[in-house]
Design a protein around this nucleic acid. Structure first.
Lengths: 141, 141
DNA sequence: ACATACCTGACTAAATTGGTCAAGTATAGT
DNA sequence: ACTATACTTGACCAATTTAGTCAGGTATGT
């Protein structure tokens, strides 16, 4: 199962973006400075976010990024999916030839992992960027 | 967040154990053969399970492992905890000096990760070894 | 034209994972 | 007492993943 800093940074950056993009596009440099995330790394992350149309880019001077949708329309699922943070548990061995453990049947954990995945995804599908903004409204940067 | 093969193997092995320890202790060799898990790796895993008193060991010929408690008393939380499968998300940076992101305040994802952790733990606290046994009763090894 | 800021791909050090290997110790059965 | 079985411990390792860095681009507003 993967759920790492990349996803965390993506969320942090998007919350930052949501907070500041009311007037102008927000440059990654600003986000980098405010959130303490490496600019080069942010570029990688935003290229993925853009590919999934979570943000739009505006090039040139005074350029930057803006959200493609409203904060309440951007769910955490979308974000994690974009940056390849698959909430995906360890795979059973290739099922092509045999079952999970080399036997003909599914291993005992097979269904369990599926259930867990659903359980976690449910959580992420409910949470939107807006929810996070509300939670942190008092925490000024 | 970590949730890897070690946890999966631990669960598989314990289900196997629960199924066969009615009469005699079960040797790791048997579990290894039935579940297709390396014996050496199982030894590492069981040493941790023993330390958390999920299983008991019986040495010598005809020795092996038995469950310390009844299957319905062993929750998945206990198992994962024993093998260090912390359902713990990526830590924010050391909080000793500063906040998560080097600022004075918590980062916006801080609470989120906490919530997620609770959400997942809830799932694991409900599930016991017995539940898994029931689910897989038709799947003979 | 030039500064800004997006864009892309190659590269890498460190950590983690999923084991293996080697050398024990304890005990039941003969 | 001997021996086979099976637990016990700790060191080691290759492959993968992570969290970046680095080096070059390209587009655009002023």
């Amino acid at each position: 199962m993967k759920l790492t800093s990349k996803g965390r940074y993506a969320v942090m950056a998007l919350v930052d973006l949501a907070r500041f993009d009311n007037i102008n596009p927000v440059s990654l440099r600003d986000i980098s400075l405010r959130q303490g995330i490496s600019l080069d790394y942010l570029e990688q992350i935003f290229s993925k976010l853009k590919k999934d149309q979570i943000v739009k880019s505006i090039r040139g001077t005074q350029g930057g990024y803006v959200l493609s949708k409203k904060p309440n329309e951007i769910k955490l699922t979308n974000i994690f999916h974009a940056v390849d943070e698959k909430v995906k548990t360890v795979q059973c061995k290739k099922e092509s030839k045999k079952g999970c453990n080399g036997k003909a049947t599914k291993c005992v954990t097979h269904n369990l992992w599926d259930e867990l995945e659903t359980h976690i995804n449910t959580f992420f599908e409910k949470k939107s960027l807006e929810d996070l903004l509300k939670n942190n409204i008092e925490q000024r940067t």
